[in-house]
Design a protein around this nucleic acid. Structure first.
Length: 953
DNA sequence: ATGATTCAGCCAACTTTGGCCTCC
DNA sequence: AGGAGGCCTTTGTTGGCTGAATCA
């Protein structure tokens, strides 16, 4: 799909640039078509899409040139010439690569993780394989194959037999050599078996993708040598046949069987995490082919890279092993993928001089053996297949840049005891220049990932042997005796050498000892590179620059804060040169010694506080009390203190000190802390007291309101809703019910909410007063309410209020606290949730009664019950919410009381509910969301919901 | 052909002592 | 009225890295 976009884009652009040459246009299309084949992945899609802007820019530039030239020349001529060049140039730049083609941060991370996981998995695999090699039966079987005199040659090499270590060493080598010869002639390498070499990341992704799709991977497991247990090894040992890797492994086992300490060495072929850069690696001629594969994720299946040696023979590939491993066989064997690979390139490769037509086995292996020479006290490398012993290990095993799919990055040696050691330095040709740089870089805080892996439990030997020290020294020597890099890139991040140009802003070579020159530039030892900091930064580390020290380097000052910025601007205005700041090395600093506390006086800085970036900065005789709010106490006590600045926060280009407690005279510490703790407990008490008071107050309000209500009821002698009469109070409810009940005025006995006429018998002021009180009580209730979802109904709570009223006064403090607690747990969000089942049941109960009454009073209004039904839940809900102070204990009691419910309690319940309902409606504006069916609301706030009028009649 | 340089894009480190509003 | 304390809000610049393109 992206390719069609590209296609269109090209077609539009070419004419836009003028009457382009036919060849040029064709070229563009062809390339676009190639891209169509290639652009399978979204990544490449994006890359192509991203490139369009750049292309456009180029075209625009061309146009500008046309215009510029138009003044001098005839436009026709111009169009032709410019167009030609433009067309020739554009496809090149376009298809070559978009300008910005680096992997996304996500892909970068994925690559890095893949690399790490792969490396660790390979390490674990090798560790396991190494363990299998210790199998005693395997050893016995192998020994049974080895002629006895080979065995005796080793066992005879004792210091008592041959006292001269040199002679012993010579004989050891000789015995080893003979063993190798025997092995080479006896063990048959099966070249048809695959060795898992490294692959480009894109190839791995491709492979995974096809696996996910369920497609059978072209390279099946039977192409690999599957080792399931020791038995598999024993079988191959008896057959004396297997892969080249198996040869190395079994030879290691054989050495161990012969009581010669032997290591299994493996070069881990982890998927590279870096994008293969064209310039970064020395690439063989096939590179354009391979790269296109990698980038576009196309065609050539990964298995081509792993063509077996047998396949290779059939294919008639005549190149060298090296060329074969590099993947050149692909071009000879398979149909070339759709990439631009000119034929002369392929010919050239085919014409590479053949070393031999037979399979030469000189390519570096993935597995090999190290044998410990006791007479020398050293590990020596052996490769029976290539008949190599004690050869310069670097030249022997490092595939260098010639092998694209055999990369030496981690070389690990597993000893018989299962512990591993990184011996890469012994084998890598360019350890610092190349090999180490292929590993994930060390992070600032996380340290060296690979070091951590290699020092982890089960990998590194927890104790050290004498030979470890010898070897470490040797490896160190190997790493540091590496010749100087031959390129500028080689010096970058080199562990041994450094050029001045690669120094970072805050780095300096001190002392600047010259150890060589590279293209006229002085080469310094990396060991002499020092990290510098400004004096302020050293202070943040608890150090100060010693007096008289001269900065080792001066750099431009960074102006991040407004203050610094202004200072710089002022300096610029004054014509002064840029503000510079000096950098100092750690050696130029000393530990900061704060002025001591004298006579209880804490020394302070110019801001009136005390710098305490590190614990070492605490003044002598001082004590740091980090408690929050302790400064107030110290002040009250009259103790001198300084607020401790432990860091800074940056906001809006300003640095804000982070104050963490105070510093006081150490002798005052206890007094201040005691006072602080005392104050804290007082505070806690106060807080509790306050809360308790508040709870009492609220209860008081509620109880008062209800008592007033009770009294009103007594006045009336009936359970009525005086306020519903409407009149001067004009509550919403009243207004609503007035309208509703207008036709049923004379009908006795009316339900509480529908008897406006009787209200007139009471003095309106009394009603208002009582209503007001109840409303206030209601409002005073905490905002956080509870909606019970368990078995207990909230209406039961309300029913129980009357009984509970008597108990309120005797609630103990602990119960109060529990109330507080339970209140805190409740989630206000529940306010808006639907009514519970209990509430619905209750509501239906109400409904039954209500409709009976309603039928009596308002025979023709069939909508009313429905209205009430719709209205009830919200009212109930609110009522329930309002009475939320009821604690768990109270609820329990209420449930009990529900059992003995009589008419009177029912009445009370209803009364409470209605009362609460009314008061709620007084400030019910925010309830509109859940009460979309609230009739009275609709009437009072007229335009809220016109449709609700329909329910009215 | 190879390596050096340049460029673009991106990320992460660096920076290092207020001011306003509310509550008590 | 005044002081204390909480809250506001997370920048902008640049060094350094990577990879591609271009130059030598």
């Amino acid at each position: 799909m992206s390719s069609s976009d590209d296609f269109e884009m090209e077609e539009v652009q070419v004419p836009a640039a003028g009457d382009g040459g036919a060849d040029g246009v064709h070229g563009v299309q062809g390339d676009a078509a190639d891209a169509a084949d290639a652009a399978d992945t979204t990544a490449s899609t994006n890359l192509h899409a991203a490139s369009s802007d750049d292309d456009q820019g180029q075209w625009e530039e061309v146009d500008a040139d046309v215009n510029a030239g138009a003044a001098d020349k005839a436009p026709e001529n111009l169009q032709i010439t410019l167009d030609k060049s433009a067309v020739e140039k554009t496809p090149e730049t376009k298809t070559a690569r978009p300008k910005r083609a680096g992997p996304s941060p996500e892909e970068r991370a994925a690559r890095l993780h893949s690399h790490k996981i792969h490396a660790v998995a390979l390490l674990a695999n090798a560790k396991h394989r190494n363990k299998l090699l210790n199998d005693e039966l395997l050893h016995a079987r192998m020994l049974s194959l080895v002629p006895i005199h080979y065995q005796l040659a080793f066992s005879a090499l004792t210091p008592s037999n041959i006292p001269d270590p040199i002679e012993r060493s010579r004989l050891f080598d000789k015995a080893l050599k003979r063993l190798m010869d025997w092995w080479r002639s006896s063990f048959e390498i099966d070249w048809s078996l695959l060795t898992p070499l490294t692959k480009p990341y894109a190839d791995v992704q491709e492979e995974l993708k096809s696996k996910r799709k369920g497609r059978q991977s072209a390279q099946d497991n039977d192409q690999y040598e599957v080792i399931r247990s020791e038995k598999s090894l024993q079988k191959r040992a008896l057959q004396m046949r297997g892969s080249r890797d198996m040869s190395a492994q079994l030879f290691t086992a054989l050495c161990r069987a012969l009581n010669v300490p032997a290591r299994l060495v493996v070069s881990l072929q982890a998927v590279p995490y870096r994008v293969q850069s064209q310039t970064a690696t020395a690439k063989p001629a096939v590179i354009s082919l391979d790269d296109s594969d990698a980038e576009a994720g196309t065609s050539s299946a990964p298995d081509t890279r792993f063509m077996t040696w047998e396949q290779r023979q059939k294919s008639g590939f005549k190149g060298t092993d090296e060329a074969f491993i590099r993947g050149e066989a692909i071009s000879a064997d398979r149909a070339p993928p759709i990439v631009r690979l000119s034929s002369h390139q392929r010919k050239k490769k085919k014409n590479t001089p053949n070393k031999s037509d037979t399979f030469d086995t000189q390519s570096p292996p993935i597995f090999w053996t190290e044998v410990f020479s006791r007479p020398d006290g050293k590990w020596i490398v052996v490769d029976p297949i290539r008949n190599m012993i004690r050869t310069k290990a670097r030249n022997m095993m490092d595939p260098g840049s010639a092998y694209k799919y055999n990369k030496m990055t981690y070389v690990i040696a597993f000893e018989e005891d299962g512990y591993a050691k990184d011996v890469t330095a012994r084998y890598a040709k360019q350890y610092g220049t190349r090999t180490v740089k292929q590993r994930p870089p060390t992070t600032k805080n996380g340290g060296d990932w690979w070091e951590r892996v290699m020092s982890s439990r089960g990998v590194a030997r927890p104790y050290r042997l004498a030979r470890d020290d010898v070897e470490d020294a040797e490896l160190h020597q190997a790493a540091f005796s590496e010749p100087m890099p031959q390129s500028m890139q080689g010096f970058k991040d080199h562990p041994v050498y450094v050029l001045a140009r690669h120094l970072k802003r805050e780095e300096v070579v001190n002392p600047p000892r010259e150890i060589g020159r590279f293209k006229g530039e002085v080469v310094y030892p990396r060991a002499n590179v020092q990290l510098l900091k400004t004096s302020e930064n050293w202070l943040r580390q608890g150090r100060v620059v010693v007096e008289g020290a001269q900065p080792l380097k001066r750099v431009k000052q960074r102006a991040v804060t407004i203050g610094k910025r202004r200072a710089q601007e002022a300096a610029a205005l004054a014509g002064e040169e840029e503000l510079m700041q000096g950098l100092y090395s750690r050696a130029q600093t000393e530990l900061y010694q704060a002025p001591p506390v004298v006579d209880g006086r804490v020394p302070k800085n110019k801001f009136g506080n005390i710098d305490l970036y590190t614990p070492t900065m605490l003044p002598q005789g001082g004590a740091h009390l980090p408690q929050k709010g302790i400064a107030k106490i110290a002040k009250k006590l009259g103790v001198d203190y300084g607020e401790a600045v432990t860091g800074f926060e940056f906001r809006q280009r300003k640095a804000n000190p982070v104050l963490t407690g105070i510093v006081v005279d150490a002798t005052q510490k206890e007094a201040v802390v005691d006072a602080y703790e005392e104050w804290q407990s007082q505070q806690a008490e106060k807080e509790l007291e306050k809360q308790t008071k508040e709870v009492y107050k609220q209860w008081q309000k509620l109880v008062q309101g209800l008592r007033i209500r009770e009294r009103l009821k007594e006045y009336r002698g009936a359970d009525m809703q005086p306020h519903e009469q409407g009149g001067g109070t004009a509550t919403k409810k009243g207004a609503a019910s007035k309208k509703k009940d207008s036709g049923a005025q004379p009908t006795p006995p009316p339900p509480p909410s529908h008897l406006p006429s009787e209200i007139k018998q009471y003095a309106p002021g009394t009603y208002e007063q009582s209503l007001d009180t109840i409303t206030k009580a209601q409002k005073a209730l905490p905002a956080r309410t509870r909606v019970r979802e368990d078995g207990g109904t909230s209406t039961a709570d309300e029913a129980g209020i009357d009984e509970d009223l008597e108990e309120v006064g005797v609630e103990s403090d602990s119960e109060m606290q529990q109330q507080q607690h339970s209140l805190e747990v409740e989630v206000p969000a529940k306010l808006g949730q639907p009514v519970t089942l209990d509430a619905l049941i209750q509501q239906q109960e109400e409904e039954r009664k209500g409709s009976a009454q309603k039928v009596a009073e308002d025979a023709d209004s069939t909508h009313v019950p429905e209205t009430r039904l719709r209205k009830r839940p919200s009212s109930l809900k609110r009522a329930r919410q309002s009475s939320s102070e009821n604690t768990q204990q109270r609820v329990t009691r209420s449930r009990v009381s529900r059992g003995g419910r009589n008419d009177r309690t029912m009445e009370n319940e209803r009364a409470v509910k209605v009362a609460l309902e009314i008061s709620d409606e007084e400030d019910a504006n925010d309830d509109d969301d859940d009460d979309d069916d609230d009739l009275s609301d609709a009437e009072v706030h007229a335009p809220v919901d016109p449709s609700s009028d329909d329910y009215d009649e």
